[in-house]
């Protein structure tokens, strides 16, 4: 009854929860055991970016095929992505407090970028809700979605790499270099990314089906 990849996502994340606490990690100053946050904080952001990517793919398909079901999926994916940004922000804030010494810092371009990206996506939902005509809403919000995704990508993935950042893998450093992840950590980190992306797809599946069902009953 439940699709196999949904159960797989649960088992993968369960594995990362257990082995992520036990596996040997590099002994680093300041980070100490909090280095294990890499298994949870980072994959959640990957899931967010994945959902936003899915949303923009549906938006482009919507523009070429003009099928309102694609617009619905695009909207739902953006909602799931936005949802995942909250645990991402909260876990990042918690981690920052105990390693950088502050809940939030405007010195870090990645934090600023994420804040702006979230605001851009909030504007997407406001834009959607302000248009009554379905076809018009689908077209305008799809065009805006492309803009939003590009801006998010620039703010999260590109600008932090151009300037100094507290985040590893930014400020000219290659991401996931030998200082960030050793082979032991990769054994947990990569499965965690797959697990959380699959879990976000599961949530998207439920949300999409619920929205379709609501639409069906509204029409009837």
């Amino acid at each position: 009854m439940i699709k196999w990849w949904k159960i797989l996502s649960a088992f993968i994340i369960l594995y990362t929860l257990v082995w992520g606490m036990l596996n040997p990690v590099p002994h680093l100053d300041i980070l100490n055991e909090t280095i294990r946050n890499v298994y949870f904080h980072v994959p959640i952001w990957f899931a967010m970016i994945f959902q936003m990517g899915l949303s923009v793919v549906y938006a482009i398909q919507q523009l070429s095929k003009n099928n309102l079901q694609l617009d619905l999926k695009s909207n739902q994916a953006a909602q799931v992505g936005l949802f995942f940004s909250f645990p991402g922000l909260l876990t990042g804030s918690m981690w920052a407090k105990f390693t950088w010494g502050t809940w939030w810092t405007f010195q870090d371009p990645k934090l600023n970028g994420v804040a702006i990206a979230i605001l851009i996506y909030l504007a997407y939902f406001i834009l959607r809700s302000s248009i009554d005509d379905e076809l018009k809403r689908a077209r305008i919000s799809s065009v805006y979605n492309i803009f939003a995704f590009v801006m998010m990508f620039v703010f999260i993935m590109i600008l932090p790499r151009l300037t100094d950042s507290l985040h590893p893998g930014n400020g000219g450093n290659p991401a996931f270099g030998k200082y960030d992840l050793d082979s032991n950590m990769r054994m947990v980190f990569y499965p965690a990314v797959i697990g959380w992306v699959l879990l976000s797809l599961w949530i998207l599946d439920i949300k999409t089906r619920l929205a379709q069902l609501t639409q069906k009953y509204d029409e009837a």
Binding site: M1, I2, L213
Partner: peptide, 10 residues
């Protein structure tokens, strides 16, 4: 809980 919701939806 997620499985329960999924089954209910089905």
């Amino acid at each position: 809980y997620l499985i329960y919701i999924d089954v209910k939806l089905k």
